[in-house]
Design a protein around this nucleic acid. Structure first.
Lengths: 139, 139
DNA sequence: ATATGGTTTTGGACTCGGTCTAATGGAGGT
DNA sequence: ACCTCCATTAGACCGAGTCCAAAACCATAT
């Protein structure tokens, strides 16, 4: 399960206690954590780790392409370790819970040239919004 | 062109100088402004208007469904007066320019039941990212 | 084993977008 | 005109994130 660590080592990424802890936190749980949540869990394993380091490390993991930044709600960014297979998101409008989803069809192909305004389009992000069963029950 | 004002009046929305100015700013230009940009333009017409009022008014227009909140980049929210016809967005990853686009196909139909996790799905938001011609030239 | 030099980490100050509050002011009904 | 609410205001506050200079750290050459 811990192939994130493997991959990072394989890329010659300098490993330090702090970096390992951040990677472990992301790798261990397949969820969508905010930077502060990552920090909180990292602190549990390595009490001295600083907020700045968590931000730095997350930023690096993102630019290495090992982790995705997800901006589903307008509050904190979330970090998604599932970068190796493309997917989209389904977000609960009430509680903010996020599920990975794989819609059929290819939204990229749905944008005709006439609607591209000369842009070099490289990426699509699809976000579904709704109410999760849990919140629907507590309506 | 100024049917936003009409519609608001028709809904019995209490009209004040400030509210009118904000509505005019949004209605006048069919672009995607941040709250601060709206404030700047509002100030040009009514120098005493406060930031808080602009935020309040934008919030109200959004909950009235007359204006859309767009969270394309991770910085400031943008306000889109084109709420009456559904559309999606194409964003320049470099300069942040935003275009309205109308992809063919219906992304809503592309999410199979098996991928809905019991959610009551009500909305899809598709964001294309790329580089605009302008930024591509200045590469 | 030690010195060296580049990289990481740190914590605190700072920025930016946005919200809140308490006091003031203005809209509209009677 | 008056009264009651709602809207507006300025400024304090907040949360998320960035920046910085100093300190700690690591890898390597000696």
């Amino acid at each position: 399960m811990s192939d994130l660590l493997e991959r990072l080592r394989g890329r010659g990424w300098r490993m330090t206690a702090q970096r390992r802890v951040v990677a472990e936190v992301l790798d261990g749980e397949h969820v969508h954590l905010t930077a502060d949540e990552v920090h909180a869990r990292a602190v549990a394993k390595l009490p001295e780790i600083s907020r700045a380091t968590v931000y730095n490390t997350l930023g690096e993991l993102v630019s290495l392409g090992e982790v995705l930044e997800v901006a589903t709600d307008k509050r904190a960014k979330r970090y998604d370790p599932n970068a190796h297979r493309p997917h989209h998101h389904l977000v609960c409008a009430r509680c903010g819970e996020i599920k990975d989803v794989h819609p059929s069809g290819n939204p990229m192909a749905d944008l005709p040239d006439s609607e591209r305004f000369g842009f070099k389009v490289s990426d699509v992000e699809v976000t579904y919004r709704g109410i999760c069963p849990n919140c629907a029950a507590t309506a």
